[in-house]
Design a protein around this nucleic acid. Structure first.
Lengths: 117, 117
DNA sequence: CTGTATCCTTGGTGATACTG
DNA sequence: CAGTATCACCAAGGATACAG
């Protein structure tokens, strides 16, 4: 597949289909980025930095680019000064939302059941 | 929390609950291990190695121990020679199954829609 | 405001050998 | 069969400075 861009997932050589999902969500920040996008619909670059204070600029750019390559997020550039760039979920990305919702559910349950009485 | 064992998740300092879930599932193999456990109910050490051929012995042990620490899997040792050790999902681990199922669903869809016509 | 470009660190992972 | 114990690597991630 010579025309594949770097980091784009291949869909081949998987034992289970779940591995495809794990690959597109791999990395420290992607699921969190998608989760915020699912809740806010449209987010700008610096809004992400406020929503995810611990992420560095480099990682944010990198993960967003990768999500874009895998067609999970849209990147819309408005040609203004100062520049405006908005990110949102693609249809493919929206189909990941059930996963994220279940993750949120489990996390809430876990936290509640492990809070000191 | 001085009595916490290493690697055990803390439940603190999270912006979103989803981060808790991401943390217990972090690592290259955990979700895959849980997915196999969800399908086979009980799996022995070397069965895992056959199910996940690419995993090394070290990583398998390490990830299983971490899943055990976080109370997602049970480790049952039968005192025989040669030794028999069986792994299975705890109740807490079973509650992760919906996440894994949604991941499997998405992966199947993605693969199908990206297969060359 | 939304990024690039470098350099550097680290821990997650892999390879290999050994053991009760 | 079901693990431990080392050694080593390197890519993911982080810090910082710069730019259109």
């Amino acid at each position: 597949m010579p025309h594949d861009r770097k980091n784009k997932i291949s869909c081949n050589n998987y034992e289970c289909e779940i591995e495809v999902t794990l690959e597109v969500l791999s990395g420290k920040w992607k699921s969190l980025i998608l989760w915020h996008l699912c809740q806010h619909k449209v987010i700008r670059f610096n809004e992400f930095r406020r929503l995810i204070p611990k992420i560095t600029q480099k990682m944010l750019t990198q993960q967003l680019r990768n999500l874009e390559e895998n067609e999970l997020v849209n990147r819309t550039v408005y040609d203004e000064t100062p520049p405006v760039v908005e990110y949102s979920l693609t249809n493919l990305g929206k189909q990941l939302v059930p996963i994220l919702e279940k993750m949120d559910e489990w996390g809430k349950k876990y936290v509640n059941s492990h809070i000191p009485h």
